[in-house]
Design a protein around this nucleic acid. Structure first.
Lengths: 128, 128
DNA sequence: GCGCTATATCAGTTTATACTTATATAAGTC
DNA sequence: GACTTATATAAGTATAAACTGATATAGCGC
């Protein structure tokens, strides 16, 4: 199953969101996700199997519990695929920044007052 | 249809890859993608409809042709969703960078020779 | 060993979607 | 206006996958 197919399911996305916060036992995921989506224990368990088989999650036994953790390798791959499109919106961000900088400069020239403007630099991409 | 479901199909991903390079007429996409995947014109046209309906592509008429262009808005959303996981591999990259820097420093101290380390990523294969 | 808890797997049903062929729409050409 | 080119839509079919209830597996406490 391709990474994007795995992410196509909202239940699996939700599970990954929860695992992004911290490791969770299967039962914990059944309770939260099963509750939110109104699905049974086997349904959640089957989604966990998909996540395991596709490399998105790892399991560790802890007594009778199965503790799941996210494995980001496939997510990195997805991220890399998206990379080819990133230039589109990043160039737009750059343009916006230029625009903001211009406004800033103009306000500065006009009033000579300190300008806050936050203006966080966009994250440096680590291409590939 | 959710963005990730749209990206779940290899044909649609391929179409988006082609549109990332430049705009393309429907017929051009039918020829390339239809050829690569061995599917008919209606099949490709139906995928184009999905891409239109889900906001991944825009169309412009040019005589009888329909010229498609990528719209990155939904891809940005996907990218934002991925953002919550990015910290995982970026911290790993940071650690790797530190490691490289250490090695570099040590080699530098040891031999006083310049280190190239080019390290260009190989081109990504286009297989789905 | 027995019962309890936690989780996975099995078998079967339903539904979504990705195709197919056939046909409709629409713009250019003569 | 008929013909051709370019593309979309329609109708029907096949298949994958997301469920359900039932059951199997396995560790724990007694």
């Amino acid at each position: 199953m391709h990474a994007f197919d795995v992410l196509g399911d909202p239940v699996r996305r939700r599970i990954l969101e929860l695992l992004a916060e911290r490791e969770r036992a299967s039962g914990e995921l059944v309770e939260i996700v099963g509750g939110e989506f109104g699905i049974s224990q086997p349904a959640v368990s089957q989604h966990l199997k998909v996540l395991r088989d596709s490399g998105f999650a790892t399991v560790r036994a802890e007594a009778q519990r199965r503790v799941y953790a996210v494995d980001t390798a496939p997510l990195e791959q997805v991220d890399r695929w998206l990379g080819r499109f990133r230039v589109f919106w990043e160039s737009k961000l750059d343009a916006l920044e230029t625009e903001i900088a211009r406004g800033k400069r103009q306000r500065h020239l006009a009033a000579q007052d300190g300008v806050s403007a936050a203006s966080r630099k966009p994250r440096q991409t680590r291409s590939a």
